[in-house]
Structure formats: C-alpha cells, structure tokens
C-alpha cells in the first residue's frame, strides 16, 4: 500500500483551491541503477478528483512528471464539499484519499 496523499482544499469567494501532493517515485524508465541496468518505468498515469461525487478534475501523467507529483487547480464549490482523489499507476497500484473543503 502506498503512502497517503496530502490534500489541502480551501474555499474563498465560491472558488475552491485544491492542492494535492502524491507520494510516488515516478520512475521515468530513463534512469540506471548502480550496476548500470535501466530501471523500468513506473509512474502514476491517471488521476481523478471528484467533489460531491462529481468530476472536477482529471489528469493523465507521463514519465515526465516529477517525483512525488504536485497538483493545484480551482473549481466552483463550497466549504464542506467532500473531495475524493483517486490515482492509478502503470503497474495497476492505486490509492484513494478523501478531504473536506475548509
């Protein structure tokens, strides 16, 4: 099981500012280990964010997204909205975390 995401969501004037920090190595497939062998690519490739059960953001990542991916986006919403963030990586590992808009 992977480490939890850190999600911060705050509302101001009807706009919710969402910041998400995922924990993932995001191996690009370009790096070599100590013995010179290529480390195979392994990265989060899809992310979905729902607020009150409705899609507010979808992302597709390639290997060019930094280790421990960070996202910031804004949607029209309110305090108390329940956010559900889902990601899945290229090995099929996945993670779901929730947060409430403050």
């Amino acid at each position: 099981m992977s480490d939890p995401m850190r999600i911060r969501a705050t509302e101001k004037d009807g706009i919710v500012d969402v910041k998400i920090l995922m924990k993932h190595d995001m191996e690009s497939g370009q790096r070599k280990d100590a013995s010179g062998k290529l480390i195979p690519a392994w990265f989060i490739n899809m992310l979905n964010v729902k607020a009150q059960g409705k899609d507010v953001f979808n992302a597709e990542f390639g290997p060019g997204v930094s280790k421990d991916p960070f996202l910031n986006f804004k949607y029209k919403g309110s305090k108390g909205d329940k956010l559900v963030v889902n990601w899945i990586d290229t090995k099929g590992d996945k993670r779901t975390d929730e947060a409430t808009v403050s």
Binding site: V56, V65, S66, F70, F73
Partner: peptide, 16 residues
C-alpha cells in the same frame, strides 16, 4: 509531460 481534462465549473488553471 501531462494533460488535464477540465470539466465545466473548473477553472482554466493548473500548476504542477
């Protein structure tokens, strides 16, 4: 590097 899908009600803004 990445692409994002922005539904109605979400702003044309992303940082990564």
């Amino acid at each position: 590097a990445a692409q994002f899908f922005i539904p109605n009600g979400t702003e044309a803004f992303v940082t990564t």
